[in-house]
Amino acid sequence: MSTGFFTDTTLCIGCKACEVACKQWNELPSDGYEFTGNSYDNTSQLSGTTWRHVAFVEQMHVEETTIDDRWLMMSDVCKHCTHAGCMEACPTGAIIRNEFDSVFVQPDICNGCGYCVVSCPFGVIDLVNVFNAEASGAYGLATLNDQRLDDKQTAVQATGGVAGKCTLCYDRQTLGMTPACAKACPTESIQFGNLEELRERANARVESLAKRGIEASLYGAGDVGGGIGALNAFFLLTDRPEAYNLPVEPVLPSTRQPAGYTAAALTAAGLAIAGWMIFRNA
């Protein structure tokens, strides 16, 4: 069965329960304690150890009316793409597609090469490199160091780090449980379920919002283009994707490979012929 997330930003109250529930379940440390001044967003981005991230977009009118003032909030997450750049790039096979059709990083296989990091068109996956004694002190509850976890050795791997991102709570799904973020979300802005059902629900939601005069669009319920296909974690937005720090035209990096290999091959052939000629004509 294909499962995924439908994140309806019109229901998001920006409480960040998803961020915390995710960290609690996945036993992830904090990313540091930096005040950004960027609205209420102090975690700033998805990272190797922040697998849900709530974006805050303030759109306040300068003049006195308050009618159209908006404070948009969106809980961002790994998109679990149909064609996933990270998975294609992974040279070890650490990133796999599991039986729930989600893109899963096997921490015991990942060797921390970082190639997935630059291959995600959404800037989601990142290396985790805070799992050492020094860092755990600085960052507080580095629970992967907790003795209760028997596989922490494989999870932490080495000081070089492993890639980290949302697993769509694979380990919870194997128990028939809802992912931690979707379960916690007080207003059910994050909905988890069968993808087909979620997409139907999302389309219906767009229509019902339109009836209320709210213009909304889906991001990733269908093909997002660039060879990526649909997203298993998709969103309902009420502004341009860029407003939420989402790409409007993402591209699957591997689509550039044929051109690259061809150019390289032609150049190499050309130079080889040139060399051959130079050596022979000398």
């Binding site: 915390v20 529930a21 609690q24 379960k183 916690a184 979300c185």
Partner: peptide, 21 residues
């Protein structure tokens, strides 16, 4: 692990960030 109790008519298994922590 501590998480929401879905049986509750008040919380329905949901929790806020503090409760999730």
């Amino acid at each position: 692990d501590v998480e929401g109790n879905p049986d509750s008519p008040i919380s329905g298994g949901h929790l806020c960030p503090k409760g999730s922590a």
